[in-house]
Amino acid sequence: MTRKNLYFLALFLGLAGQIWIVYSYKKLERQEEAFNTCIFRRVTGLPCPSCGTVHSIVSIVHGNFRQALNENPLGYLGFPIVLIIPWWILADLAFGRESFYNFYLRSNKFLNHRWVLFSILSVIFLLWLFKLGHFLHWI
C-alpha cells in the first residue's frame, strides 16, 4: 500500500473513531444506548470479538478499570491506538516525515511471522469465546 493511501485511510478511520467515541460517550452519559454499528451483531444477534470496545473505552475514561475489563479487554488496546494515530499522521504530514509509514511496514513484517499472528488471533478468539459464554449464560 502506498504511503498516501495508507495515510488517507488511517486518518479517515482514526478521526471517524474519535468522533464516534465522543458521540457514544455523550449518549452513554445521558444513560441512552448508543447506535450499534456491528453488522455481525445485527445479523446473528451475537457479539463479535470487538463488541463492547466503545463501552470499555468510556469506562476507562470514567476510571472504572475493572468494568472496562469486563466489557471488553480490547478497549485497553483500542483506546491508545484511536487516540494517538490521527495525531501521529497529522504530525508526519506537517513535518514531512514517514515515521507512521515505517511503523506500518515494520508491524506488517512482524505480523507476517505465522506464530506471532497465530498467537494474537488465538488470544482474540479466546476472549471472544469467553464473551460468548458470558453472553449465552454458559459461564
Partner: peptide, 29 residues
C-alpha cells in the same frame, strides 16, 4: 467485518486492526 480479506492478501497489520475495531465500526468494511 473480521478483516479476513486483508489477512488473505497479506496486509496483516490492517487485518488485525480491522478485526479489533469491529471492521472499523462497520465503516471500513
Amino acid at each position: 467485518h473480521f478483516g479476513i480479506d486483508r489477512f488473505i492478501i497479506g496486509d496483516m497489520g490492517l487485518g488485525v486492526a480491522k478485526l479489533l475495531t469491529c471492521g472499523g465500526l462497520g465503516i471500513w468494511t
